[in-house]
Amino acid sequence: MPSLGSIRRSFAPWEDPGAKPYISFQNVTKRFGTFTAVEDLSLDVYEREFFSLLGPSGCGKTTLLRMLAGFEEPTEGELYLDGQPLKGVPPHKRPVNMMFQSYALFPHMSVADNIAFGLKQDGMEKAAQDERVEQMLKLVKLEEFARRKPHQLSGGQRQRVALARAVAKRPKLLILDEPLGALDKKLREETQFELMDLQQELGLTFMIVTHDQEEAMTMSDRIAVMDKGVIVQTGTPAEIYEAPNSRYVADFIGSVNILEGRVESTDDGHVVLDGPDGKITGALRGASIDKGTTAWFAIRPEKIEISRTKPEGAVNALEGEVWDIAYLGDMTVLNVRLGSGAVVQAAMLNRLRLVEDPIGYDERVWLSFGAESGIVLDR
């Protein structure tokens, strides 16, 4: 049976009508004076879920987390954790740990003591403390830095200490605000998978804020894309990437080409658009779309084939001229200028080290793609 993107795993409580949300925002609004940071927002997150809030700076992501942690109170609406209302409950009485973007480490304490701080506050025995701290140091690869002070560490190392301290207490809910932003690319990628494994092993619920799309796509069971204090789409990484509900979401997640046209016909879940560079047939997003209206065809670069001659039997084929070429190692990206002046990006996977007669600058080429390769959006 066809699936939208690769199957991550069978865990999907949001598809069960009888499942009870672990976190529930109900018509929550948060204002700071005349500025509305979050507006009439409703969202359910389930136990053991790895949930990401994704959006540009200032869209309200961190404000949501701060309300959940107890550092802000909603102006309107209700917030529940494990069925219990959180209104008026102070931060230290919530089964929640938050890793701050600013790290908030104690400068006079060593790395090991920073990690152990919450364990000491909870009265954990010294032997158990030491064992837990050792586990956390191993997790973030800082065993040799245990006795150092925060000022003796790099920004990325301090971030890893903050992560270890947040996880050490094994909270029911761990909130992370841009947790991996200061790490280098390779360490960030390694830590993403370690976080996923840790979350599964401990059975915790993770709620993370990030503006890094790749990070959200890698780690999340589901993603909520935010804009100006509202959630514009919630779904699995595959749903967000392959079936965006608007040009905003399509454009925000990964690279995408968006071509405008007028709806000429609709049939069996597909739409024919008449655009300045010819007709395009794509999959319909939603139940219906009116003929004669303006719509947009969104397609990812890796779903486009590029060739010197027009492919026989191609459902969609557009002709253009190679304008720019970028060799990225694993793939080569070509920007192709169509007759209308629109530029379409196509990506070719570099499966072989050597390429016979590679396509070069200023060549005339054809871009082809199937009807299911892209999606038609009405907004």
Rank of each mutant, 00 (worst) to 15 (best):
A128T: 14
R222A: 04
S246A: 07
V333P: 13
V167W: 08
D251T: 02
L64M: 14
L41N: 03
M196I: 12
M67H: 03
G60N: 10
L180M: 15
F50Q: 07
Q159A: 00
A326M: 10
A37S: 13
I23F: 04
G83P: 03
S42Q: 11
K93D: 11
L142S: 03
P171Y: 14
A243C: 11
G70T: 09
G275W: 02
M348Y: 04
A287R: 09
V96W: 07
G360I: 09
L318S: 14
F32G: 11
P301E: 00
M331G: 03
G83F: 01
L173P: 03
M1Q: 08
R308N: 00
L68A: 06
E178D: 13
T236P: 05
L68N: 02
A19W: 07
K20A: 14
T309Q: 15
Q135R: 01
S154I: 11
R94V: 05
D324A: 14
R262W: 07
R379M: 00
E194F: 06
D16Q: 00
L195N: 10
R48E: 00
K186P: 08
F50R: 08
V355P: 08
M331T: 08
V232A: 02
A164I: 00
Q159K: 04
V333Y: 03
V111N: 03
P91H: 12
T191R: 11
F117L: 13
D16G: 01
I7E: 12
P13C: 03
T191W: 08
T218F: 04
T309A: 15
K172P: 02
L86E: 04
E264T: 08
P171C: 14
V249T: 06
Q199S: 12
I7L: 05
S42E: 10
V272T: 06
S288T: 09
L105R: 05
E78S: 14
S340C: 01
G229T: 09
G286I: 04
R9A: 14
P311M: 06
S102N: 14
L68V: 13
L176Y: 06
R379T: 10
V263R: 05
T29A: 05
P56K: 10
E49C: 11
I175A: 11
V89H: 11
V343W: 02
K279R: 14
